[in-house]
Nucleic acid binder design. Structure first.
Length: 424
RNA sequence: GGAGAGGUGGCCGAGUCGGCUGAAGGCAACCGCCUGCUAAGCGGUUGUAGGGGCUUAAACCUCUACCCAGGGUUCGAAUCCCUGCCUCUCCGCCA
């Protein structure tokens, strides 16, 4: 959510953001309502001041046993007028809020302008492996080694749900532990564990709602949503709180399952592990002071990259264009791992700075050491990493001519083996 | 799932039959004073948001709102009523 005063004073910037992020919002209507609201408030406040004075007088008269019925009758009309104005203000504010929550965050000036085609590759790491045999896609390697079972997953829950068996299940569990250990021990994050279902309000807080309701699993009986990412519960952990400035930044890492209906994405990119409805992810979330948030974004990106570097998986980093960024983000980097079996890059992480956009919605502030005047924190998050595509990258990059997969050095303590072979 | 109790400022805690209660009292913090040092003591200050004024801006002035949240009753609500959320106690159920 943007600050109303900011919108008032930077209407063209906001207009551009709405256009870039394809969010048609009636900004002129909003400004009109803003004027109307302020007029009504002025009038109501005046009447309330009058009422307060009269109330005091009535109280005094009653105490002195005088007849106050004349005053009371006169104030009745004022009370009714105030009620009418308050109702009007409430209605205007509700309409304004409805518009406000649909206004996207303003992209940072350093982001390339345009749609997905304008995304800028800012880094490539590692060497794309060359194979002197015919490479296989993970959907052949996985089942052949008995690691993943697509058919039985679908039988349980429908298409694009999966089941892991044996070393496949252990690989999943090992990767989670490996990533969390790395972020906690090397990067200084604190591990948290949170619920996988949350209230509607939380989805508004981080900005998934109102836009993405169709993409989420919803438990109607309790009006709870299955989380699409740990970002939602972890960022909302501190809603309505004021941090002590000296305690910032606060860094969390969390493993959670993630649930996405992926409505409307059928047909493309849905084979194998590329796009599944339930997947595991290790997430990093930061609460920081505004002046440090862009440095924190770079280090967050570095922490996510470190996972791939430690595993030895080649990847590239994209700085997303204004039109390809999510609703709430001000700046976003995507990390894409190379998948030789598919012959393409796969997004395994998305690292974003939301500035104060989410903090405003959740009312998360901090008290600077010096001024004592509370300000909104900046929030950031990044995947570190999403599991299924990391599994794809491991299976496809480290496959051998014999059909086995060499386990990256860093994962061996977690898996207990150095190679994945059939029948394990 | 059933029954009950409760949610007041940074913290603790008082608010009687609705009427100078933004809110007693205590603690904490900050600023003075005092003081070989420390401690104690004395005086003062300390919430947030929204309007309006003034200003380059900040400071400042003024009004309004806020005693979990949202409605309602009333001339007037922290105080009465309804709904929601949360916490606690007891019973039931249970991995």
């Amino acid at each position: 959510m943007l600050d109303l005063q900011f919108i008032r004073e930077n209407i063209e910037t906001v207009r551009n953001a709405c256009r870039d992020k394809r969010a048609p919002v009636d900004l002129d209507g909003l400004l009109g309502m803003d004027r109307e609201r302020r007029e009504a408030i002025q009038k109501a406040d005046q009447l309330k001041a009058e009422r307060n004075r009269a109330s005091e007088e009535i109280a005094r008269m009653k105490k002195e046993k005088q007849d106050a019925s004349g005053r009371i009758a006169a104030m009745k009309a004022v009370g009714d007028e105030i009620k009418g104005l308050d109702e009007r203000i409430r209605a205007i504010e509700a309409s304004m809020r409805e518009l406000l929550i649909h206004i996207p965050n303003i992209p940072h000036a350093s982001c390339p302008a345009g749609g997905p085609e304008a995304n800028r590759v800012v880094k490539e790491w590692g060497t794309i492996p060359e194979f002197d045999f015919k490479v296989q896609p993970h959907w052949d390697i996985g089942p052949a080694l008995g690691l993943v079972d697509f058919d039985r997953g679908s039988r349980l829950s429908g298409s694009n749900f999966i089941a892991y068996f044996g070393m496949g299940a252990r690989l999943e569990r090992g990767l989670i532990n490996f990533m969390i250990d790395l972020h906690v021990q090397k990067h200084g994050y604190r591990e948290v564990w949170v619920p996988s279902v949350v209230r509607r309000e939380m989805m508004f807080g981080t900005g998934q709602l109102p836009k993405l309701e169709e993409d989420m699993y919803h438990c109607g009986k309790d009006d709870l949503f299955l989380i699409p990412t740990a970002e939602v519960p972890v960022t909302n952990l501190h809603r309505e709180e004021t941090f002590d400035g000296a305690k910032l930044p606060v860094l969390y890492t969390a493993y959670t399952p993630c649930f996405r209906r992926e409505a409307g994405s059928y047909g493309s990119d849905t084979r194998g592990l590329v796009r599944v409805h339930q997947f595991d992810k290790v997430e990093m979330v930061k609460f920081v002071k505004p002046e440090t948030s862009y440095d924190e974004l770079e280090s967050l990106l570095g922490n996510a990259e470190d996972v791939l570097q430690t595993l030895g998986i080649p990847y590239r980093v994209l700085c997303l264009a204004t039109g390809d960024m999510s609703f709430a983000a001000a700046k976003c980097y995507d990390i894409e791992a190379w998948a030789p079996g598919l012959g393409r890059w796969l997004e395994v992480s998305s690292c974003s700075n939301f500035e104060d956009f989410q903090a405003r919605r959740m009312n998360i502030r901090y008290r600077p050491e010096k001024s004592g005047k509370t300000e909104y924190v900046h929030t950031l998050n990044g995947s570190g990493l999403a599991l299924p595509r990391t599994v794809i990258a491991i299976l496809e990059n480290f496959q051998t001519e014999e059909g086995t997969v060499v386990v990256p050095e860093a994962l061996r303590p977690y898996l207990g083996v150095s190679e994945l072979k059939p029948g394990m």
